[in-house]
């Protein structure tokens, strides 16, 4: 009579599952009771997550585009004056053995002068040159797989070859762009942290308000022997749902943004004779976004409910 009869209670594992289902239903009930407020919260969380993400996506696209430009970076090797054909031949052989070199082309001083005359519309007589002032040049095209650092290394290797006076890399603009992109990435990271904290606060505050609305229920459940976990669980699920749906909202927003920019970008690329398909978030970033949203929701609701439960413990 006075003893709890465990045979009429459900096995532990099934009981756990039903408790979780009950908590999920409970929190869905909480959310659907004020659908507009919930929708608004989802939207706010979604926008807050989408802001840093869209910056991230833009940066990612700039990087992909610029890396396709890397292949066009050329190294000009200026030769010493008066080198013999044999010396030139040796240099070319050694140079072509370097695995960073895709192809190389020798431009003799005469050739160089002709090119110059053609491009400038002036001829040697007009310039009144007694002798050809141009050195011989080897134009090296690096392997397209090389990144900027590897190209820098290739440059320093080539500059040490015999018969070479200077090696010049036509990539300064790319380095500058990469430096700017690095700042952009830092900024995106910083914004992500700031907006993650904002989302944390939004969810914590929303859950805190919900706990206040359920003040009586929480007190009653505590009085009749509900554990803190039992009380916490529906709120944790609410937090998870806020984070999850907010993340999905953010994903949709970024997706819409990418779709919106696709046409003008394709047009711009076509002006350069290229085809370019804008990159979206990608699978792994999407998974990080969803996971991050869930984690933020969980942490925020845990903090909000735990603080609340602590307040009503007997002192």
């Amino acid at each position: 009579m006075t003893q709890v009869n465990y045979s009429i209670q459900v096995p532990r594992s099934i009981q756990k599952i039903t408790e979780h289902l009950r908590a999920i239903l409970n929190s869905l009930g909480q959310l659907s009771r004020s659908p507009w407020a919930s929708l608004l919260t989802f939207a706010v969380i979604g926008i807050a997550l989408a802001l840093p993400l869209s910056l991230f996506v833009v940066l990612k696209n700039i990087q992909v585009v610029s890396s396709s430009f890397q292949a066009s970076g050329q190294i000009n090797l200026y030769l010493q004056n008066n080198i013999s054909d044999e010396q030139l031949h040796n240099t070319l052989v050694v140079l072509n053995m370097d695995e960073g070199v895709a192809k190389s082309q020798y431009i003799s001083p005469q050739q160089g002068l002709q090119d110059f005359e053609q491009n400038s519309g002036l001829n040697g007589s007009a310039l009144n040159l007694q002798s050809n002032p141009l050195p011989g040049v080897i134009v090296v095209t690096p392997e397209s797989s090389l990144n900027t650092l590897q190209i820098e290394q290739l440059l320093s290797r080539l500059s040490k070859l015999p018969s070479i006076t200077t090696a010049q890399l036509d990539l300064k603009w790319l380095q500058r762009l990469n430096a700017i992109l690095a700042i952009g990435h830092r900024t995106a990271l910083l914004l992500m942290i700031i907006f993650a904290i904002a989302v944390l606060l939004i969810i914590a505050n929303t859950i805190h308000l919900t706990t206040q609305n359920h003040h009586d229920e929480i007190l009653v459940i505590k009085l009749i022997g509900g554990t803190n976990n039992f009380i916490r669980r529906p709120f944790l699920y609410s937090g998870i749902i806020y984070g999850l749906v907010g993340a999905i909202f953010a994903w949709l927003l970024v997706d819409i943004m990418v779709g919106f920019l696709q046409n003008p970008i394709t047009h711009l690329a076509s002006l350069y004779g290229a085809t370019y398909v804008m990159q979206g978030l990608g699978l792994s970033t999407t998974l990080y976004l969803i996971g991050g949203g869930i984690l933020l929701g969980l942490i925020a609701s845990w903090l909000a409910v735990s603080r609340y439960i602590y307040e009503i413990e007997p002192k």
Binding site: V4, I8, R22, D216, V220, G226
Partner: peptide
């Protein structure tokens, strides 16, 4: 201390729900 958003039946059931019946 009854919960007004629950029925009488649900109110009375609460201790059993908590104990996992």
């Amino acid at each position: 201390n009854l919960l007004n958003d629950k029925t009488v039946l649900e109110n009375v059931a609460l201790p059993l729900v908590i104990a996992g019946y």
